[in-house]
Amino acid sequence: MKAIASFLYVGYLRPAPGTWGSLAALPVAWGIHQIGGFWLLLNLTVFVFLSGYIATAKVTAGQEDHDPSWIVIDEVAGQWIALFPVSYGAMLMSADITRLWPGWIAAFVLFRLFDIWKPGPIGRADRMGGPMGVMLDDVVAGVFAALGVIVLAAIGHGVML
């Protein structure tokens, strides 16, 4: 279970294990998109969320700390959600996903910003405690980041000028 919760032990890298987890999620998301596009990324994100919830519940059972820093599977799920607009846009336009590199950067930066800052509903989810709080705050941060990616893409493509 530690291998799942730490995303194959990436969570033990220092400093900033959450950032390492988000960085490690990027090439894996690229590979998933290459194999099966947006729909595979979406399905595997659901699988990672559920697996992460179960693994987090098991490794934190009876522990005082419900969210140790080495658990980064939540960052993987959130980072993949932040990449949804990039993956979907590449699929829709039949474009090589690497050509959408500004979206990758925006998704990473915005996700880390929201995950660290924890405004509004992200902070409320984090304060839930337990494995659901561990996973859910990153899911909500991923949704906020994805919305930010969409807005930045609209501005960048002249839709919102």
Rank of each mutant, 00 (worst) to 15 (best):
M1W: 12
M1E: 12
I4W: 01
A5M: 03
A5K: 00
S6G: 09
S6R: 09
S6H: 03
F7I: 15
F7N: 10
L8G: 08
Y9C: 09
G11M: 11
G11K: 04
Y12W: 07
L13C: 10
R14H: 15
P15L: 09
P15A: 14
G18R: 14
S22L: 08
A24K: 04
V28T: 05
G31N: 04
G31E: 07
I32C: 07
I32N: 06
I32T: 10
H33V: 09
H33W: 15
H33Q: 12
Q34Y: 09
Q34A: 10
Q34N: 06
Q34K: 09
G36Y: 13
G36L: 07
G37Y: 13
G37T: 12
W39A: 14
W39L: 13
L42T: 05
L44Q: 01
T45R: 01
T45M: 00
V46K: 08
V48Y: 10
V48D: 06
G52K: 01
I54H: 08
A57G: 09
A57V: 08
V59N: 01
Q63R: 03
Q63I: 02
Q63F: 04
E64Y: 02
E64W: 03
D65Y: 06
D67K: 06
P68Q: 00
I73C: 11
I73Q: 06
E75M: 05
E75H: 08
E75F: 09
V76R: 03
V76Y: 02
A77S: 11
G78C: 05
W80T: 05
L83K: 01
L83Y: 00
V86C: 11
S87Q: 00
Y88H: 14
G89C: 03
M91D: 15
L92E: 13
D96I: 12
L100Q: 01
L100T: 00
W104G: 00
I105Y: 08
A107Q: 10
F108Y: 02
F108M: 06
F108C: 02
V109W: 10
L110Q: 14
F111V: 02
R112L: 11
W117K: 12
K118H: 02
P119F: 00
P119Q: 06
G120T: 14
G120Y: 12
P121F: 15
I122T: 08
I122Y: 15
G123N: 01
G123I: 07
G123L: 07
D126L: 05
M128R: 11
G129V: 06
G129S: 11
M132E: 12
G133K: 05
M135T: 06
M135Q: 13
M135S: 04
V140W: 10
G142W: 06
V143A: 13
F144E: 07
A145V: 11
A146T: 02
L147P: 01
G148L: 05
I150F: 12
I150Y: 03
V151P: 02
I155V: 14
I155N: 04
G156Q: 06
G156S: 07
G158W: 08
V159F: 14
M160P: 00
L161P: 13
